[in-house]
């Protein structure tokens, strides 16, 4: 008589359909593709800039195409989603204890949003938007 415990396999490629929270996780992971692609675009831009004015003008023209604008909008949405989920997670990774109490989580996450806004404005200021 065999008394084997039954081992159930986890489907290696479709497990994330098993629960909405896994899909949420995967959507966060997928945003990194857009963030990565945008970094690549910046590197290509630098390379064009180094190859002279005609290459650079061509690059800028490419950026104005409809495809490019769609990509930028998608990348922006992905980056914002990635950043917010990250900021919301910081309160778990970096709790601050003062005496017997912990600083409320939303204060820690909130501080990250504040730094984000300040840095964004600083960069916009440096590139001469204001």
């Amino acid at each position: 008589m065999s008394r084997r415990p039954l081992v159930r396999e986890v489907p290696p490629t479709s497990w994330y359909f098993r629960h909405p929270r896994y899909l949420r996780y995967m959507s966060r992971e997928i945003t990194s593709i857009f963030v990565g692609a945008y970094c690549l675009l910046l590197v290509v831009g630098l390379q064009r800039l180094a190859s002279g004015p005609t290459a650079w003008e061509g690059f800028l023209l490419g950026l104005r195409s409809a495809d490019s604008i769609v990509f930028h909008l998608l990348a922006l949405a992905a980056a914002v989603y990635h950043a917010t989920t990250w900021f919301n997670a910081t309160q778990k990774a970096m709790p601050i204890q003062i005496g017997e109490d912990f600083v409320p989580g939303n204060v820690i996450s909130g501080a990250h949003y504040v730094v984000w806004v300040v840095l964004s404005f600083a960069i916009l200021f440096l590139v001469g938007v204001f």
């Binding site: 629960h19 929270r21 896994y22 996780y25 997670a89 778990k92 990774a93 970096m94 709790p95």
Partner: peptide, 23 residues
């Protein structure tokens, strides 16, 4: 993934412990 903390009935929040240990 954070699923551990969502299901924990004792509010242990294992995900936070693991992230702190990564740091």
């Amino acid at each position: 993934v954070g699923a551990c903390s969502e299901v924990c009935p004792a509010h242990v929040d294992p995900a936070s412990a693991l992230q702190q240990m990564k740091i």
